[in-house]
Design a protein around this nucleic acid. Structure first.
Lengths: 225, 225
DNA sequence: CATGCGCTCGACCGATCGGTCGGGGCTCAG
DNA sequence: CTGAGCCCCGACCGATCGGTCGAGCGCATG
């Protein structure tokens, strides 16, 4: 076929390359919107080769999702284990989540799909061990921030209210933003992932959770504008 | 001959039924995840009949999306045109958005997909008039809340900060919540769409935007409710 | 040399995809 | 009656889907 000796150094990292490509494609068009042929071609392999690394499309998708969640969990764990008040750790938790999405841009979209699209996978995929692993990681992440919020409430640093409701807000405000793509850039009038936008997003969310959106009517400092 | 004033809707509600079914299915599994056969069967029609009401899958999807956006725009318009301060109107805007999603449950998921998945449609679909209509409606909605935020800032009712960033937060916190499905119910430990959950969500978001999440450190007045 | 193994491949499978086509039943105007 | 419009349908199209199969490759062992 090819007279030239193919195979630069591809033999080693094929699995990782497949995961990278699949992550990007699944993030863009979803589980049902991407074909294995397309993934294989983008990697530079034949479609059959994918089946030597993964058991099928559903398992590949779950491995991709698990890898993303694992990366995020690692970053968030650092924030949870850091020093300081619960509110300070919550700030770091938010910033770590933002950093995770800014570092690996497709993550946010992939995660949003994974979180919201429970019915996209064929039913038999729920029996795969990777499915349970994804759910476990998700539960650990959610339990971590839940404990942080409760601790903050007990310490009087966080106002009363339902921690699950706060978690929903946190996830929505962070994940949606970095998954919003073209529309988000239209709203912002600036690229989503530039260093400046990322910094601005962190500042906005930290400020939101500290003081809300309303101007503080009481004897709070206000800017002269 | 002469334009016969037929009434296309009463003669057969097929078109509306198709739209209802398609909205629900597209919301659950996305554009690529739903086949026309499945839609037709769920409606109780043959697949060919869909083509007598719509030009194809992409156009059907865009009509569904446009219908959802139209419903939402109607509700939000009422909030924008209401009486009161900008902050009061913003509260009503948020509550109207929540009501829209609570009333038509698939809306949130469909919208989240539509907003985030720009690459899911075949490229030629962007030339369809429905595509432009969807974008126009979206722009009007975004422009409306943008003006509201700026007005609130000028009136000193809303703190300084980037209105687009605030919009991203608003959308994420509301749309994600009602699109979060199974995971959201796991987080909340309660159904997403019960009257109580909807009321709680409104209260949480209004409170968030008014005072943040942190306990107010200063001598703020506590509302004696 | 031979053997086995990790990895890749093209050919092929049945099923399903979006979309087309010609025609049949229905109602209403002439 | 006869046509004209709808609305609907089953049959069919080429393309693509996820997945299987057997063989071929280079390479490390004997």
């Amino acid at each position: 076929m090819s007279p030239v000796a193919r195979m630069p150094e591809s033999s080693g990292g094929s699995r990782e390359k497949i995961l990278d490509v699949a992550e990007s494609l699944f993030a863009r068009r979803g589980f049902a919107g991407v074909g294995l042929r397309e993934i294989a071609q983008a990697v530079g392999l034949g479609k059959s080769s994918l089946f030597h690394h993964f058991d099928g499309k559903a398992q590949l998708y779950l491995v991709v999702l698990g890898r993303v969640l694992g990366r995020i969990e690692g970053r968030l764990g650092g924030a949870l284990a850091s020093e300081g008040t619960a509110m300070q750790r919550l700030d770091r938790w938010i910033e770590a989540l933002i950093d995770a999405f800014a570092e690996t841009p497709p993550s946010a979209r992939l995660l949003l799909r994974g979180l919201v699209e429970d019915e996209q996978l064929p039913p038999e995929a729920e029996a795969l061990p990777e499915f349970a692993a994804v759910n476990d990681t998700l539960d650990r992440i959610l339990a971590g921030v839940y404990r942080l919020l409760v601790e903050g409430q007990r310490a009087g640093e966080i106002r009363t209210g339902s921690p699950p409701q706060m978690i929903q807000t946190l996830i929505g405000a962070v994940v949606y933003h970095f998954a919003s793509g073209e529309l988000g850039e239209r709203v912002l009038g600036a690229p989503l992932l530039s260093a400046e936008s990322v910094r601005e997003r962190k500042a906005e969310l930290v400020r939101l959770f500290h003081t809300g959106i309303a101007a503080c009517p009481g004897p709070r400092q206000e800017d002269p504008s």
